[in-house]
Nucleic acid binder design. Structure first.
Lengths: 206, 206, 206, 206
DNA sequence: TATGAATGAGTATTCATTCAT
DNA sequence: GATGAATGAATACTCATTCAT
């Protein structure tokens, strides 16, 4: 049974939740527009209108356009960090871990409205620094898994950096052509991408 | 032996050549900046300064900033078209053709200062339409080769579109991390990319 | 002895008093901020926060930011008017009256948190007209006293307007450097200012 | 006789001069508006229109509105510094030096379109810091002269700071009521102000 | 050819103010 | 009485582009 909340003063908890939800909505709406048209080709008015808000109302939820872009990036890296952590605990060869991780990445980008934004040029100062740091962190984590795979023989020996960049590049490209609800589901793309990635780097069968 | 051109009235041919050369210089300088910082983060002043020109002087060689971006795109697709034509005449399986083509693409993008620019959002109207058309043309050409490969058994059966997007994505990503004169030569990257691409899609060994 | 007011229904008199007191508090808090940072560099949010209120709550006590500024000005002129009236009834030479009045003015501005605000530009329409009128009224009253002093020989003959502006200017400057609780008390400044003013304009000793 | 300058390429010296002159014009026009209406009540469009320029053209001559205000302040302090230096070399009592200096100050502010702007609140960061520093420097220089005068007996002993603030205040007030071309010339005001200042602080006649 | 000067159109951002609850 | 949410109007600033010289 619920405690009857007095209607005159809604619990502050709800307020905060509503606020957070709307802030998220703003960032996601903006992120979608950024992905489709690019950061600089998307004006704050457009974002506002897509949410049925006035331009000024946006600033109640976010500090600046740049902060929105920053958060778009950060959300992706947060989600990726979680996937990385999850995979680290797994048993299995480097290749198996990489497959799991890569599948997560593809699903992330096709399912949650998140996007690996290329518009890093729109960020300056600390925003830029932080995002580059986060990207580097992910790249290093993936590279470490690849190197481990090369050691245990599950991944063919090669320059790890080039190897990583090759299949990570496909993720970025995803933003530009994947349409939710299109002919191909995210799941199908994930299967296909993982298969190609695996076949492209797998070591010799024992 | 060359006829010494009188200095006062250089042959009009030289004039045109000079003009064309300078125009190319403008477009390449701009393209390099676009690739590094993005179209909208690069001002005409910057481009001018990087060439030792005044802002206004640019407009003697190009009609607009958008036209520069347009030409950057077109130059890539022109070069790619040539590679496509060259490969079409070759003998060999679909996979072999694809390998040749892909190698050409990587070399193109690492050697000639050309870049597969993502800033399509900066283009409007006919500029945009044309560029999208050219991109589509290349994609279809590559896809046709892949399909042929699937028929002749050299490439494993799968959704051709996803297959193509996977390894074409890596090309776009190239822009963002490849530094001419860095640790890895374009040649090396080309070898590695081709190897991964091939392994990722090759059909069962007969 | 006071009648103990029942808590549930406080006499309407208290209501009004409370309201007036709070309104005064808003105006004084705003005035202090205006003096320190200027009208346009002080936002309504700042004023609200300095009183522990929400931005919207201010509007329960005042109609607009401009009205606050207007009232700040008016309060000074009201107080000055009282001083002028008090001095008018006095006996003595023009110089003596002027000394009394000037002392009152300095005390007013150092003691009561009032300030001779320079931000008249922030006022428009009737607000501006009224404030300028009140300022003119004070200036004329002071000038009349000076002229009387010149007639009775207590003040040296000179252009009365320049004379007045000279020592009135010092009052305005006061806002910008006087800090309550600083090294110098308002009383001390008053003594010093009056002395300099007097010496500067006194007529020849008889 | 003039050297006939080739018309096609005017000497760069002229260019620079023209540019500097226009920049000065912008700053003076803005300064005049700031004085009359206040910094925040003056928009860049207004300034531009008063010069027959477009808003954007202003930015060819100045970096920002704040930079204009900064320069307005600095020009006054530069001029004052020169006066201070000139007076320092003089012979005479402290009082005599002060008279000379004060006269210069009044003339400066009534003659050259310069103004002792009160809108320091419009400045931030280094701009503000520098202006406050410059103001402090002037105040200290004046105070030193006053102290010297107190030592040599030409100025009556009193708190030097209050003494200085009293007559410096009149200068600031000047901005708000002095109209070039009005009833009183700058020269006349200077005479009157100096007389009142002197009489107000002079030491006992020997 | 080349440039200094000027501009129009667009954009992010701020802030006083209102209103439903 | 009080506030969270929303908005309209204003404003500084940028930048690609033009044009007289």
């Amino acid at each position: 049974m619920k405690t009857p909340a007095s209607k005159s003063t809604p619990p502050p908890f709800d307020r905060e939740r509503q606020y957070a939800a709307k802030r998220r909505a703003v960032i996601f709406a903006a992120g979608a527009a950024f992905r489709k048209q690019g950061y600089h080709n998307t004006s704050m008015v457009e974002i506002a209108r897509s949410l049925g808000l006035s331009k000024a109302a946006l600033y109640y939820y976010v500090k600046s356009k740049e902060e929105i872009l920053y958060n778009c990036h950060i959300m992706v890296y947060d989600a990726m960090d979680i996937s990385v952590k999850a995979v680290r605990g797994n048993k299995g060869t480097g290749l198996e871990k990489l497959e799991n991780l890569y599948e997560e990445f593809v699903k992330l980008l096709t399912r949650d409205g998140l996007a690996l934004l290329a518009d890093i040029g729109g960020l300056k100062g600390d925003f830029k620094k932080t995002v580059l740091m986060r990207r580097g962190k992910i790249e290093r984590a993936v590279t470490r898994i690849v190197i481990a795979g090369m050691k245990d023989g599950s991944i063919a020996k090669a320059d790890p950096k080039v190897t990583v960049f090759f299949f990570m590049g496909a993720l970025n490209w995803l933003n530009l052509w994947f349409e939710p609800g299109g002919r191909l589901s995210g799941e199908e793309i994930a299967q296909a991408f993982v298969a190609q990635m695996r076949a492209g780097i797998a070591g010799p069968k024992p």
